[in-house]
Design a protein around this nucleic acid. Sequence first.
DNA 1: GGTAGACCTGGACGC
DNA 2: GCGTCCAGGTCTACC
Length: 310
Amino acid sequence: MGGMKFTLSARQPFALQPVVKSHGWVQLAPFKLDEGQGNPDDLKNATVRKKPPLRLTYIDQLSNGRIIEYEIKQSGKGVQVQTENLDKFEKAEASQHINWMLGLDMGFSDFYKFVRMEPKLAHAKRAARGRILRSPTFFEDVIKTILTTNTLWAATIRMNLNLINTFGGAIAANGKKAFPTPGQIAAAKPDVLRKDVRVGYRAPALHELAVRVATGELDLEAFKHSPLPTADLRAELLKINGVGPYAAANLLMILGRHDFIPIDSWALKLVSHEWYRGKPVTPKQVERRFKKWGSYKGLAYWLWDWKFTG
DNA sequence: GGTAGACCTGGACGC
DNA sequence: GCGTCCAGGTCTACC
């Protein structure tokens, strides 16, 4: 087996579970979640144990082409990473990726202060919430976000899995696959995206994006540390074919910009049941309800302790 | 600046 | 069994 372990520290407060459970991303390959089920003892221990062990795995491709798997667990005030033996450059890159994926150096003290009088948000600090699970590359998150639009969640999971199985590189030893690089998708015919990956009408948009990133025309990774004001960054995101108001807001949230609410059909449902007795609402009404939270309205929406749970 | 209609796909529902 | 609807929306064409 071999391999190596290392730990990464996080800005406090931090807990792995709320990051992993922050949205559906963990259900999208190459993420995988292992909550320690399968042991018969778990049942009787469940009532005793305070923190169920939670193990997040991810198949990553480093810039030198090497594909490796991370097993990430909570460890003290940060995380412990188990992976294959890496040289110091690989380890630095892997650490950087995991740091980004979990938002280890993000802080939310201003937000916590701002919302501490709001009963629906007061839990945020207690539960160390605010971080949103993200993929190592912004490219991957843009693709995944486009795959969430105008479809069922189950279909998003399937399309994403097809994309990985069709184009992604694999670990030789076990066949586990990484998310495809822009080049791998760009090299394919758009028709393959439609016919094999089954992404439907999204095929041209996805392919075009992969080509633009692969050729260097569009530097998506630069969005991570862009000096642009959020509104300008949003305008840039909206230029991407397939990215509209919802997707842009979702991607801004992923970038740690919380000024906009990703208003989808689910958001309308939540707000409808929260304040309008289940009567249909418009995006404008959602905006109105969260206006007071200013540049934190996205987070306020995201972390709101909703009445409606489905 | 605001709003109908079309759009791949494949479960869920009604009949 | 089949048709219809619709989902973690977006784009285009109009007003």
